[in-house]
Design a protein around this nucleic acid. Structure first.
Length: 424
RNA sequence: GGAAAGGUGACCGAGCUGGCUGAAGGUGCACGAUUGGAAAUCGUGUGUACUGUUAAUAGCGGUACCCCGGGUUCGAAUCCCGGCCUUUCCGCCA
Protein backbone atom coordinates (compact mmCIF):
# COMPACT_ATOMS: atom_id res chain seq x y z
CA UNK A 1 0.00 0.00 0.00
CA UNK A 2 1.24 3.44 -0.87
CA UNK A 3 1.63 6.06 1.81
CA UNK A 4 -1.46 8.25 1.76
CA UNK A 5 0.49 11.19 3.13
CA UNK A 6 2.99 10.86 0.34
CA UNK A 7 0.23 10.78 -2.22
CA UNK A 8 -1.00 13.97 -0.63
CA UNK A 9 2.32 15.78 -0.33
CA UNK A 10 4.34 14.50 -3.27
CA UNK A 11 1.62 13.59 -5.66
CA UNK A 12 3.50 14.23 -8.90
CA UNK A 13 6.47 12.09 -7.94
CA UNK A 14 4.28 9.24 -6.73
CA UNK A 15 2.23 9.32 -9.90
CA UNK A 16 5.35 9.37 -12.06
CA UNK A 17 6.83 6.30 -10.37
CA UNK A 18 3.55 4.38 -10.55
CA UNK A 19 3.00 5.29 -14.17
CA UNK A 20 6.46 4.03 -15.09
CA UNK A 21 4.90 0.58 -15.07
CA UNK A 22 3.16 1.63 -18.23
CA UNK A 23 -0.31 0.51 -17.25
CA UNK A 24 -2.00 3.77 -16.44
CA UNK A 25 -2.49 5.62 -13.21
CA UNK A 26 -4.42 2.87 -11.36
CA UNK A 27 -6.95 5.40 -10.11
CA UNK A 28 -4.38 7.43 -8.23
CA UNK A 29 -6.10 10.77 -8.98
CA UNK A 30 -9.34 9.37 -7.61
CA UNK A 31 -7.59 8.39 -4.39
CA UNK A 32 -6.28 11.89 -4.04
CA UNK A 33 -9.75 13.36 -4.50
CA UNK A 34 -11.38 10.89 -2.11
CA UNK A 35 -8.74 11.61 0.48
CA UNK A 36 -9.57 15.28 0.34
CA UNK A 37 -13.27 14.55 0.60
CA UNK A 38 -12.64 12.23 3.50
CA UNK A 39 -10.67 14.76 5.46
CA UNK A 40 -13.30 17.40 4.89
CA UNK A 41 -15.93 15.09 6.33
CA UNK A 42 -13.68 14.07 9.19
CA UNK A 43 -13.22 17.64 10.33
CA UNK A 44 -17.00 18.06 10.46
CA UNK A 45 -17.88 14.83 12.18
CA UNK A 46 -15.06 15.01 14.70
CA UNK A 47 -16.11 18.47 15.68
CA UNK A 48 -19.63 17.17 16.27
CA UNK A 49 -18.32 14.26 18.29
CA UNK A 50 -16.27 16.64 20.33
CA UNK A 51 -19.31 18.61 21.43
CA UNK A 52 -21.23 15.39 21.96
CA UNK A 53 -18.54 14.19 24.34
CA UNK A 54 -18.42 17.51 26.10
CA UNK A 55 -22.15 17.66 26.75
CA UNK A 56 -22.34 14.00 27.69
CA UNK A 57 -19.89 14.69 30.44
CA UNK A 58 -22.07 17.44 31.80
CA UNK A 59 -25.24 15.37 31.91
CA UNK A 60 -24.57 13.52 35.17
CA UNK A 61 -24.08 16.83 36.97
CA UNK A 62 -27.24 18.26 35.49
CA UNK A 63 -29.17 15.23 36.64
CA UNK A 64 -27.68 15.44 40.09
CA UNK A 65 -28.67 19.04 40.50
CA UNK A 66 -32.17 18.14 39.45
CA UNK A 67 -32.20 19.98 36.15
CA UNK A 68 -34.69 19.03 33.48
CA UNK A 69 -32.82 17.14 30.74
CA UNK A 70 -35.71 16.60 28.35
CA UNK A 71 -34.72 19.41 26.05
CA UNK A 72 -31.02 18.59 26.06
CA UNK A 73 -31.74 14.92 25.36
CA UNK A 74 -33.80 15.93 22.37
CA UNK A 75 -30.93 17.98 21.00
CA UNK A 76 -28.44 15.25 21.75
CA UNK A 77 -30.56 12.69 19.99
CA UNK A 78 -30.53 14.88 16.93
CA UNK A 79 -26.77 15.38 17.17
CA UNK A 80 -26.30 11.67 17.63
CA UNK A 81 -28.31 10.95 14.49
CA UNK A 82 -26.41 13.53 12.48
CA UNK A 83 -23.13 11.99 13.59
CA UNK A 84 -24.27 8.53 12.58
CA UNK A 85 -25.28 9.81 9.19
CA UNK A 86 -21.95 11.51 8.61
CA UNK A 87 -20.07 8.48 9.89
CA UNK A 88 -21.75 6.38 7.25
CA UNK A 89 -20.63 8.85 4.61
CA UNK A 90 -17.05 8.87 5.89
CA UNK A 91 -17.00 5.12 5.89
CA UNK A 92 -18.28 4.91 2.36
CA UNK A 93 -15.65 7.34 1.12
CA UNK A 94 -12.93 5.51 3.04
CA UNK A 95 -13.97 2.17 1.67
CA UNK A 96 -13.99 3.41 -1.87
CA UNK A 97 -10.61 5.03 -1.39
CA UNK A 98 -9.07 1.97 0.22
CA UNK A 99 -10.38 -0.32 -2.46
CA UNK A 100 -8.62 1.71 -5.12
CA UNK A 101 -5.56 2.20 -2.96
CA UNK A 102 -5.19 -1.54 -2.39
CA UNK A 103 -5.17 -2.03 -6.12
CA UNK A 104 -2.35 0.41 -6.79
CA UNK A 105 1.05 -1.22 -7.22
CA UNK A 106 4.21 -0.09 -5.53
CA UNK A 107 6.27 2.75 -6.91
CA UNK A 108 9.19 1.33 -8.83
CA UNK A 109 12.67 2.24 -7.69
CA UNK A 110 14.04 5.23 -9.60
CA UNK A 111 16.96 3.22 -11.01
CA UNK A 112 14.58 0.77 -12.71
CA UNK A 113 15.12 0.54 -16.44
CA UNK A 114 12.01 1.73 -18.23
CA UNK A 115 10.44 -0.90 -20.43
CA UNK A 116 7.17 -2.59 -21.17
CA UNK A 117 7.86 -6.29 -20.64
CA UNK A 118 10.48 -8.91 -19.88
CA UNK A 119 12.11 -8.29 -23.24
CA UNK A 120 13.49 -5.07 -21.85
CA UNK A 121 14.96 -6.40 -18.64
CA UNK A 122 18.52 -5.43 -17.99
CA UNK A 123 21.19 -8.11 -17.79
CA UNK A 124 23.43 -7.45 -14.80
CA UNK A 125 25.86 -10.38 -14.88
CA UNK A 126 26.39 -13.91 -16.09
CA UNK A 127 27.93 -16.85 -14.31
CA UNK A 128 29.19 -20.03 -15.93
CA UNK A 129 29.21 -21.06 -19.55
CA UNK A 130 26.32 -22.89 -21.20
CA UNK A 131 27.52 -26.39 -21.94
CA UNK A 132 28.18 -27.44 -25.53
CA UNK A 133 26.76 -30.89 -26.17
CA UNK A 134 28.46 -33.27 -28.56
CA UNK A 135 25.26 -35.30 -28.78
CA UNK A 136 21.63 -34.39 -29.13
CA UNK A 137 20.58 -32.98 -25.79
CA UNK A 138 17.16 -33.91 -24.53
CA UNK A 139 14.62 -31.82 -22.69
CA UNK A 140 14.14 -32.60 -19.00
CA UNK A 141 10.67 -34.07 -19.55
CA UNK A 142 12.15 -36.66 -21.87
CA UNK A 143 15.13 -37.32 -19.63
CA UNK A 144 12.84 -37.69 -16.62
CA UNK A 145 10.34 -39.91 -18.38
CA UNK A 146 13.03 -42.11 -19.89
CA UNK A 147 14.70 -42.55 -16.51
CA UNK A 148 11.28 -43.22 -14.96
CA UNK A 149 11.80 -40.54 -12.35
CA UNK A 150 9.15 -38.11 -13.63
CA UNK A 151 5.63 -39.26 -14.46
CA UNK A 152 3.43 -36.69 -16.14
CA UNK A 153 0.75 -39.04 -17.45
CA UNK A 154 -0.17 -40.61 -14.15
CA UNK A 155 -0.19 -37.18 -12.53
CA UNK A 156 -2.80 -36.17 -15.06
CA UNK A 157 -4.84 -39.22 -14.14
CA UNK A 158 -4.94 -38.52 -10.43
CA UNK A 159 -5.20 -34.74 -10.64
CA UNK A 160 -4.85 -33.05 -14.00
CA UNK A 161 -2.50 -31.12 -16.19
CA UNK A 162 0.31 -29.10 -14.70
CA UNK A 163 0.99 -31.66 -12.01
CA UNK A 164 3.90 -34.05 -11.81
CA UNK A 165 4.58 -37.27 -9.98
CA UNK A 166 8.21 -37.74 -8.98
CA UNK A 167 9.51 -41.21 -8.44
CA UNK A 168 12.58 -42.97 -7.13
CA UNK A 169 15.72 -40.90 -7.64
CA UNK A 170 13.59 -38.07 -8.99
CA UNK A 171 11.71 -37.75 -5.73
CA UNK A 172 14.99 -38.10 -3.90
CA UNK A 173 16.59 -35.38 -6.01
CA UNK A 174 13.77 -32.99 -5.18
CA UNK A 175 14.09 -33.77 -1.48
CA UNK A 176 17.88 -33.53 -1.62
CA UNK A 177 17.66 -30.08 -3.16
CA UNK A 178 15.27 -28.85 -0.50
CA UNK A 179 17.63 -29.98 2.23
CA UNK A 180 20.69 -28.70 0.44
CA UNK A 181 19.18 -25.25 0.00
CA UNK A 182 17.85 -25.03 3.55
CA UNK A 183 21.19 -26.12 4.98
CA UNK A 184 23.01 -23.49 2.94
CA UNK A 185 20.66 -20.72 4.01
CA UNK A 186 20.56 -21.69 7.66
CA UNK A 187 24.11 -22.87 8.27
CA UNK A 188 26.12 -20.60 5.98
CA UNK A 189 23.97 -17.56 5.33
CA UNK A 190 22.35 -16.81 8.67
CA UNK A 191 18.70 -17.52 8.00
CA UNK A 192 16.33 -19.06 10.53
CA UNK A 193 14.19 -21.83 9.18
CA UNK A 194 10.41 -21.56 9.29
CA UNK A 195 7.94 -24.29 8.41
CA UNK A 196 4.68 -22.39 8.03
CA UNK A 197 1.11 -23.42 7.25
CA UNK A 198 0.48 -24.00 3.56
CA UNK A 199 -2.90 -22.34 3.78
CA UNK A 200 -3.47 -18.78 4.89
CA UNK A 201 -6.43 -16.53 5.49
CA UNK A 202 -7.60 -13.58 3.45
CA UNK A 203 -5.87 -11.05 5.64
CA UNK A 204 -2.46 -12.60 5.12
CA UNK A 205 -3.01 -12.73 1.38
CA UNK A 206 -3.89 -9.06 1.44
CA UNK A 207 -0.87 -8.23 3.57
CA UNK A 208 1.66 -9.31 0.98
CA UNK A 209 -0.33 -7.95 -1.95
CA UNK A 210 -1.79 -11.04 -3.62
CA UNK A 211 -5.27 -9.85 -2.71
CA UNK A 212 -7.51 -8.23 -3.66
CA UNK A 213 -6.17 -7.95 -7.20
CA UNK A 214 -5.02 -11.46 -7.94
CA UNK A 215 -7.65 -13.64 -6.33
CA UNK A 216 -8.20 -15.47 -9.63
CA UNK A 217 -4.63 -16.75 -9.51
CA UNK A 218 -5.10 -18.43 -6.14
CA UNK A 219 -6.54 -21.75 -5.09
CA UNK A 220 -9.29 -21.01 -2.61
CA UNK A 221 -10.93 -23.16 0.05
CA UNK A 222 -14.41 -21.69 0.33
CA UNK A 223 -15.57 -23.51 3.46
CA UNK A 224 -12.92 -21.71 5.50
CA UNK A 225 -12.11 -18.81 3.20
CA UNK A 226 -8.50 -19.98 3.17
CA UNK A 227 -6.07 -19.85 0.28
CA UNK A 228 -3.35 -22.29 -0.68
CA UNK A 229 -0.15 -20.28 -0.57
CA UNK A 230 1.33 -19.28 -3.93
CA UNK A 231 4.69 -18.77 -2.22
CA UNK A 232 6.13 -19.00 1.29
CA UNK A 233 6.48 -15.24 1.11
CA UNK A 234 2.86 -14.99 2.24
CA UNK A 235 2.91 -16.91 5.53
CA UNK A 236 6.47 -15.93 6.41
CA UNK A 237 6.11 -12.20 5.76
CA UNK A 238 2.83 -12.16 7.64
CA UNK A 239 4.42 -13.82 10.67
CA UNK A 240 4.97 -10.36 12.09
CA UNK A 241 1.77 -8.73 10.90
CA UNK A 242 0.41 -6.17 13.35
CA UNK A 243 3.56 -6.28 15.44
CA UNK A 244 5.98 -3.64 16.56
CA UNK A 245 9.40 -5.24 16.46
CA UNK A 246 12.34 -4.31 18.61
CA UNK A 247 14.96 -2.52 16.53
CA UNK A 248 17.60 -4.77 18.03
CA UNK A 249 15.85 -7.82 16.62
CA UNK A 250 16.45 -6.52 13.09
CA UNK A 251 17.43 -7.64 10.58
CA UNK A 252 15.37 -10.83 10.66
CA UNK A 253 16.28 -13.44 8.07
CA UNK A 254 13.95 -16.37 7.49
CA UNK A 255 14.02 -19.23 5.08
CA UNK A 256 11.21 -21.65 4.45
CA UNK A 257 10.49 -24.66 2.34
CA UNK A 258 6.90 -24.90 1.17
CA UNK A 259 4.96 -26.21 -1.75
CA UNK A 260 3.42 -23.40 -3.76
CA UNK A 261 0.06 -23.46 -5.48
CA UNK A 262 -0.84 -21.34 -8.45
CA UNK A 263 -3.69 -21.45 -10.90
CA UNK A 264 -1.54 -20.09 -13.71
CA UNK A 265 -4.75 -18.71 -15.09
CA UNK A 266 -3.13 -16.36 -17.55
CA UNK A 267 -0.54 -18.72 -18.94
CA UNK A 268 -2.58 -21.21 -20.94
CA UNK A 269 -0.39 -22.77 -23.59
CA UNK A 270 2.89 -21.58 -22.08
CA UNK A 271 5.44 -24.04 -20.77
CA UNK A 272 3.00 -26.88 -21.16
CA UNK A 273 5.66 -29.56 -21.13
CA UNK A 274 7.79 -30.53 -18.19
CA UNK A 275 7.96 -29.16 -14.69
CA UNK A 276 8.54 -25.50 -15.48
CA UNK A 277 5.01 -24.24 -14.88
CA UNK A 278 3.00 -26.34 -12.45
CA UNK A 279 -0.05 -25.81 -10.29
CA UNK A 280 1.97 -27.19 -7.39
CA UNK A 281 5.71 -26.83 -7.03
CA UNK A 282 8.24 -26.77 -4.24
CA UNK A 283 10.24 -23.74 -3.37
CA UNK A 284 12.71 -22.66 -0.73
CA UNK A 285 12.15 -19.01 0.02
CA UNK A 286 14.19 -16.39 1.82
CA UNK A 287 12.44 -13.50 3.56
CA UNK A 288 14.02 -10.51 5.23
CA UNK A 289 12.73 -7.83 7.59
CA UNK A 290 15.14 -4.93 7.74
CA UNK A 291 15.52 -1.28 8.62
CA UNK A 292 14.64 1.01 5.70
CA UNK A 293 18.11 2.42 5.26
CA UNK A 294 19.57 -1.04 4.77
CA UNK A 295 17.06 -2.59 2.42
CA UNK A 296 18.93 -2.10 -0.84
CA UNK A 297 22.15 -3.42 0.58
CA UNK A 298 20.11 -6.37 1.84
CA UNK A 299 18.61 -6.93 -1.60
CA UNK A 300 22.07 -7.36 -3.09
CA UNK A 301 23.02 -9.80 -0.34
CA UNK A 302 19.78 -11.73 -0.74
CA UNK A 303 20.34 -12.08 -4.46
CA UNK A 304 23.86 -13.34 -3.87
CA UNK A 305 22.54 -15.86 -1.36
CA UNK A 306 20.30 -17.28 -4.06
CA UNK A 307 23.06 -17.21 -6.64
CA UNK A 308 25.28 -19.21 -4.35
CA UNK A 309 22.92 -22.17 -4.66
CA UNK A 310 23.50 -22.27 -8.41
CA UNK A 311 27.21 -21.70 -8.05
CA UNK A 312 27.53 -24.65 -5.70
CA UNK A 313 25.50 -26.74 -8.13
CA UNK A 314 27.62 -25.40 -10.99
CA UNK A 315 24.70 -24.44 -13.18
CA UNK A 316 25.13 -21.47 -15.53
CA UNK A 317 22.87 -18.53 -14.85
CA UNK A 318 22.46 -14.83 -15.29
CA UNK A 319 20.96 -12.07 -13.21
CA UNK A 320 18.63 -9.49 -14.73
CA UNK A 321 17.03 -6.44 -13.25
CA UNK A 322 13.37 -6.31 -14.14
CA UNK A 323 12.26 -3.31 -16.16
CA UNK A 324 9.45 -1.06 -15.01
CA UNK A 325 6.78 -2.98 -16.92
CA UNK A 326 7.85 -6.33 -15.49
CA UNK A 327 8.34 -5.52 -11.80
CA UNK A 328 5.72 -7.31 -9.71
CA UNK A 329 2.80 -5.53 -8.07
CA UNK A 330 4.24 -5.16 -4.57
CA UNK A 331 7.88 -4.77 -5.48
CA UNK A 332 9.95 -1.64 -5.92
CA UNK A 333 12.96 -3.40 -7.38
CA UNK A 334 13.45 -6.96 -8.51
CA UNK A 335 16.34 -9.07 -9.74
CA UNK A 336 15.51 -12.31 -11.46
CA UNK A 337 18.00 -15.12 -11.54
CA UNK A 338 17.66 -17.17 -14.68
CA UNK A 339 19.23 -20.60 -15.27
CA UNK A 340 20.41 -21.89 -18.54
CA UNK A 341 17.99 -24.49 -19.91
CA UNK A 342 19.30 -26.26 -23.02
CA UNK A 343 15.79 -27.34 -24.05
CA UNK A 344 14.64 -23.74 -24.15
CA UNK A 345 17.94 -22.55 -25.55
CA UNK A 346 17.70 -19.63 -23.20
CA UNK A 347 17.83 -18.51 -19.61
CA UNK A 348 14.71 -19.25 -17.60
CA UNK A 349 13.64 -17.64 -14.32
CA UNK A 350 14.47 -19.72 -11.25
CA UNK A 351 14.48 -17.03 -8.60
CA UNK A 352 13.00 -13.62 -8.11
CA UNK A 353 14.53 -11.36 -5.48
CA UNK A 354 12.62 -8.24 -4.54
CA UNK A 355 12.68 -5.30 -2.23
CA UNK A 356 9.15 -4.29 -1.34
CA UNK A 357 10.34 -1.40 0.77
CA UNK A 358 7.45 -0.54 3.10
CA UNK A 359 4.68 -1.55 0.67
CA UNK A 360 3.94 -4.89 2.31
CA UNK A 361 4.83 -3.62 5.77
CA UNK A 362 2.10 -1.01 5.44
CA UNK A 363 -0.47 -3.54 4.33
CA UNK A 364 0.47 -6.12 6.94
CA UNK A 365 1.27 -3.43 9.52
CA UNK A 366 4.77 -4.59 10.40
CA UNK A 367 6.72 -1.96 12.27
CA UNK A 368 9.71 -1.53 14.52
CA UNK A 369 10.56 0.90 17.27
CA UNK A 370 13.63 3.04 16.75
CA UNK A 371 15.93 2.71 19.76
CA UNK A 372 17.01 6.30 19.68
CA UNK A 373 13.90 8.26 18.79
CA UNK A 374 11.46 5.71 20.29
CA UNK A 375 9.31 6.27 17.22
CA UNK A 376 7.68 3.43 15.36
CA UNK A 377 8.32 3.05 11.69
CA UNK A 378 7.55 0.51 9.00
CA UNK A 379 10.17 -2.12 8.30
CA UNK A 380 11.22 -2.96 4.79
CA UNK A 381 10.48 -6.48 3.60
CA UNK A 382 12.34 -8.45 0.98
CA UNK A 383 12.15 -11.91 -0.37
CA UNK A 384 13.67 -14.15 -2.95
CA UNK A 385 13.51 -17.73 -4.05
CA UNK A 386 16.43 -19.77 -3.03
CA UNK A 387 15.36 -21.54 -5.27
CA UNK A 388 12.38 -22.90 -7.12
CA UNK A 389 13.07 -26.59 -6.60
CA UNK A 390 11.29 -28.11 -9.60
CA UNK A 391 13.04 -25.78 -11.99
CA UNK A 392 16.33 -26.64 -10.34
CA UNK A 393 15.63 -30.31 -10.98
CA UNK A 394 14.92 -29.48 -14.61
CA UNK A 395 18.15 -27.49 -14.83
CA UNK A 396 20.16 -30.35 -13.33
CA UNK A 397 18.63 -32.96 -15.59
CA UNK A 398 19.28 -30.91 -18.67
CA UNK A 399 22.68 -29.51 -17.83
CA UNK A 400 24.07 -32.72 -16.36
CA UNK A 401 22.66 -35.18 -18.86
CA UNK A 402 24.91 -37.65 -20.62
CA UNK A 403 24.71 -39.24 -24.00
CA UNK A 404 23.43 -42.54 -22.59
CA UNK A 405 20.47 -40.80 -20.98
CA UNK A 406 21.84 -40.88 -17.46
CA UNK A 407 22.34 -37.79 -15.35
CA UNK A 408 25.38 -36.94 -13.26
CA UNK A 409 24.57 -35.72 -9.77
CA UNK A 410 26.23 -32.36 -8.99
CA UNK A 411 29.05 -32.95 -6.53
CA UNK A 412 27.51 -30.77 -3.83
CA UNK A 413 24.36 -32.89 -3.89
CA UNK A 414 25.90 -36.33 -3.63
CA UNK A 415 25.83 -36.40 0.19
CA UNK A 416 22.19 -35.40 0.03
CA UNK A 417 21.52 -38.18 -2.47
CA UNK A 418 22.77 -40.85 -0.11
CA UNK A 419 26.02 -41.11 -2.03
CA UNK A 420 24.35 -41.55 -5.41
CA UNK A 421 26.63 -40.09 -8.07
CA UNK A 422 24.66 -40.80 -11.16
CA UNK A 423 20.99 -41.24 -11.93
CA UNK A 424 20.44 -43.94 -14.50
C1' G B 1 -18.47 -31.51 15.94
C1' G B 2 -20.92 -30.97 21.46
C1' A B 3 -20.39 -28.39 26.47
C1' A B 4 -18.24 -24.63 29.61
C1' A B 5 -15.10 -20.45 30.64
C1' G B 6 -12.72 -16.44 28.66
C1' G B 7 -10.46 -12.53 25.22
C1' U B 8 -8.53 -5.18 28.76
C1' G B 9 -2.27 -1.27 27.62
C1' A B 10 5.00 -4.31 26.71
C1' C B 11 3.31 -8.04 30.57
C1' C B 12 0.15 -9.45 34.92
C1' G B 13 -4.41 -7.84 36.47
C1' A B 14 -9.00 -4.60 38.36
C1' G B 15 -13.34 -2.64 36.28
C1' C B 16 -18.13 -5.38 33.45
C1' U B 17 -25.40 -3.16 38.89
C1' G B 18 -23.58 2.08 31.75
C1' G B 19 -21.25 8.54 32.60
C1' C B 20 -16.08 11.09 37.04
C1' U B 21 -11.60 5.10 32.96
C1' G B 22 -7.08 5.67 27.75
C1' A B 23 -8.50 2.91 31.37
C1' A B 24 -7.07 1.43 39.18
C1' G B 25 -2.98 -1.52 41.12
C1' G B 26 1.42 -4.18 40.13
C1' U B 27 5.63 -5.63 36.98
C1' G B 28 8.72 -3.99 33.24
C1' C B 29 11.04 0.12 30.78
C1' A B 30 13.15 5.43 30.58
C1' C B 31 14.94 9.69 33.08
C1' G B 32 16.14 12.01 37.75
C1' A B 33 17.36 11.85 43.22
C1' U B 34 20.15 8.85 46.67
C1' U B 35 25.28 5.85 46.36
C1' G B 36 32.35 5.36 45.88
C1' G B 37 29.51 1.95 42.50
C1' A B 38 25.38 -1.28 42.62
C1' A B 39 20.96 -3.26 45.03
C1' A B 40 17.02 -1.28 47.70
C1' U B 41 14.16 3.24 48.14
C1' C B 42 11.83 7.81 46.43
C1' G B 43 10.08 11.16 42.34
C1' U B 44 8.58 11.83 37.26
C1' G B 45 7.34 9.74 32.83
C1' U B 46 5.94 5.57 29.76
C1' G B 47 0.38 3.23 23.64
C1' U B 48 -1.14 3.52 18.56
C1' A B 49 -3.77 5.38 14.38
C1' C B 50 -6.31 9.17 12.02
C1' U B 51 -6.98 14.36 11.92
C1' G B 52 -6.54 20.20 12.60
C1' U B 53 -2.62 23.78 12.97
C1' U B 54 2.59 23.67 11.22
C1' A B 55 8.37 23.78 7.44
C1' A B 56 8.02 19.59 10.72
C1' U B 57 7.10 12.16 11.20
C1' A B 58 8.62 19.11 16.91
C1' G B 59 4.72 21.21 19.97
C1' C B 60 -0.40 22.08 20.93
C1' G B 61 -5.76 20.77 19.91
C1' G B 62 -9.54 17.04 18.29
C1' U B 63 -11.38 12.00 17.16
C1' A B 64 -11.00 6.80 17.54
C1' C B 65 -9.24 2.31 19.73
C1' C B 66 -10.41 -2.34 26.31
C1' C B 67 -10.53 -9.37 20.08
C1' C B 68 -13.50 -7.93 15.28
C1' G B 69 -18.27 -6.21 13.22
C1' G B 70 -23.19 -4.49 14.13
C1' G B 71 -27.14 -2.77 17.67
C1' U B 72 -29.51 -0.31 22.17
C1' U B 73 -28.62 4.61 24.59
C1' C B 74 -28.02 11.57 25.25
C1' G B 75 -23.68 8.45 26.64
C1' A B 76 -20.75 1.51 26.37
C1' A B 77 -14.62 -1.67 28.09
C1' U B 78 -19.29 -2.19 30.74
C1' C B 79 -25.99 -4.15 28.06
C1' C B 80 -27.80 -7.04 23.31
C1' C B 81 -26.76 -9.78 18.52
C1' G B 82 -23.24 -12.00 14.95
C1' G B 83 -18.21 -13.55 14.02
C1' C B 84 -13.12 -14.90 15.14
C1' C B 85 -9.72 -16.79 18.55
C1' U B 86 -7.89 -19.15 23.25
C1' U B 87 -8.35 -22.67 27.32
C1' U B 88 -10.67 -27.03 29.62
C1' C B 89 -13.88 -31.43 29.22
C1' C B 90 -16.26 -34.89 25.66
C1' G B 91 -16.27 -36.84 20.64
C1' C B 92 -13.23 -37.75 16.29
C1' C B 93 -8.50 -38.33 14.36
C1' A B 94 -2.58 -38.46 11.78
Amino acid sequence: MLDLKRIRNEYDEVERLVKLRGKGDYGLPKVKALDEERRGLLVQVEDMKSSQNKISKEIPQMKKSGQDTTEIFKEMKQLSNDIKELDVKVKAVEEEMNEILMGIPNMVHPDTPVGKDDGENLEMRKWGEPRQFDFEAKAHWDIGTDLDILDFERATKITGTRFTVMKGKGARLERALVNFMLDLHTEEQGYTEILPPFMVNREAMTGTGQLPKFEDDMFHIPSKDFFLIPTAEVPVTNLYANEILDELSLPIYHTAYTPCFRKEAGSAGRDTRGVIRQHQFNKVEMVKFVKPEESYKELEALTHNAEEVLQLLAIPYRVVQLCSGDVGFSSAKTYDIEVWLPSYGEYKEISSCSNFEDFQARRANIRYRDEETKKVNYVHTLNGSGLAVGRTVAAILENYQQEDGSVVVPAALIPYMGGCEIIK
